[in-house]
Design a protein around this nucleic acid. Structure first.
Length: 340
DNA sequence: TCTGGGGTCCTAGGACCC
DNA sequence: TCTGGGGTCCTAGGACCC
């Protein structure tokens, strides 16, 4: 029985690939890859060959020469996302988007219902009304609901009732926890912690020594199955950005500035289309050797016109005090609003 | 022949103000 | 005049997520 809360995590399986398949049934059953030059999404058949998002085309073709490639159709994915979220909002009191294709649903209003039945019904509605396969996890908290849906993928339903939380968490590896990435996992491994059970046995002080205070507290709570973060509706976006990986060391400064200007304009167009203004522009450069370097400038007031940003980001002007601008590609363009 | 592109949040130090 | 604390803003970097 869910006494306080019931959270669902709903996630469309292989989203882009599933939309393509829905719109062209001939693509059903084969290894399907959406993308050009780089894998943006892979069907589960393609994933069986070890193909995943971000992989380069050459590597993907080596692993599965017979995969079918289709170019991305972002408009179709946006519309599919709106359709899926319309169903989410129809069944849940609060919907918190995680991305285009996934969301947390606060089902507090339906907490007397059977979680499994709710999840099955949601899956059926998305399949019938939008034509897309959905996986649903149900639990008391967001993290557990997320872990449940991950365990149930694809096209599944998994409920973790409160009395089963410990048994579900214990055998997981620490890197399976949502929020524990490669760096944090490495620190835990070096401290002799591999599984969530081992992590849960450590004291808060010990975990904080290993990971630092804030991160230690969060990870310690995750391992204990404690996650009090509520399902929240989305706030206004905090930043708009544009980025590209295609910058060569052989480019001249003038060519780099053209790339940079184009990125600033691209980000600003999307920002203005949504009705926001910005005060801060961040230029970020990721070097092939690894390091990421950023420089930012904050104006006194949010502005409508991106001209000043293009000038300050691209033309090498300097902030009032501080270091010179890095020559390179724009990465972020922060929104102003009231705060930044 | 090119190692995705879009985000979020946190931390730490310095400047500045009261 | 000196010391100290608290708060906010800005900048740079880091980690993580889909």
């Amino acid at each position: 029985v869910f006494v306080f809360t019931l959270v669902l995590h709903a996630d469309v399986d292989a989203f882009f690939a599933s939309v393509e398949r829905r719109d062209d049934p001939r693509l059903t059953g084969c290894p399907l890859i959406v993308g050009t030059h780089v894998v943006m999404a892979a069907s589960y058949e393609a994933r069986a060959f070890g193909i995943h998002g971000g992989m380069r085309e050459r590597e993907a073709r080596r692993r599965c020469p017979d995969a079918v490639w289709v170019p991305p159709r972002s408009g179709a994915y946006m519309q599919a996302s709106r359709d899926v979220f319309a169903v989410f909002r129809d069944v849940a009191a609060i919907v918190e988007p995680g991305s285009l294709e996934e969301a947390f649903l606060d089902m507090a209003d339906a907490r007397d219902s059977d979680p499994h039945a709710l999840a099955v019904a949601l899956r059926a509605r998305v399949r019938d009304e939008v034509g897309l396969p959905l996986t649903v996890g149900a639990a008391r908290s967001k993290v557990l609901a997320k872990l449940a849906s991950r365990a149930a993928k694809p096209e599944g339903v998994k409920v973790i009732p409160p009395e089963a939380e410990r048994a579900f968490l214990d055998p997981l590896n620490v890197e399976d926890l949502w929020g524990v990435g490669p760096k944090t996992a490495g620190k835990l491994h070096r401290a002799g912690i591999t599984t969530v059970a081992e992590l849960a046995r450590r004291s808060l002080a010990n975990v904080s020594d290993i990971l630092g205070k804030a991160s230690g507290r969060e990870v310690h709570a995750l391992a204990a199955g404690r996650d009090l973060r509520p399902v929240q509706p989305p706030g206004p976006p905090r930043s708009f950005g544009a980025s590209t990986a295609y910058v060569r060391a052989s480019m001249t400064l003038t060519e780099l500035r053209q790339v940079l200007d184009g990125l600033v304009v691209r980000a600003c167009e999307r920002m203005r289309a949504k009705g926001y203004r910005a005060r801060t522009v961040v230029v970020q450069l990721q070097f092939v050797e690894g390091p990421v370097v950023s420089r930012s400038v904050t104006l006194a007031q949010a502005i409508e016109d991106d001209g000043p940003f293009v000038t300050r980001a691209g033309a090498g002007s300097r902030p009032a005090r501080g270091a010179a601008q890095a020559p390179g590609s724009v990465d972020h363009e922060r929104r102003g609003g009231e705060r930044r």
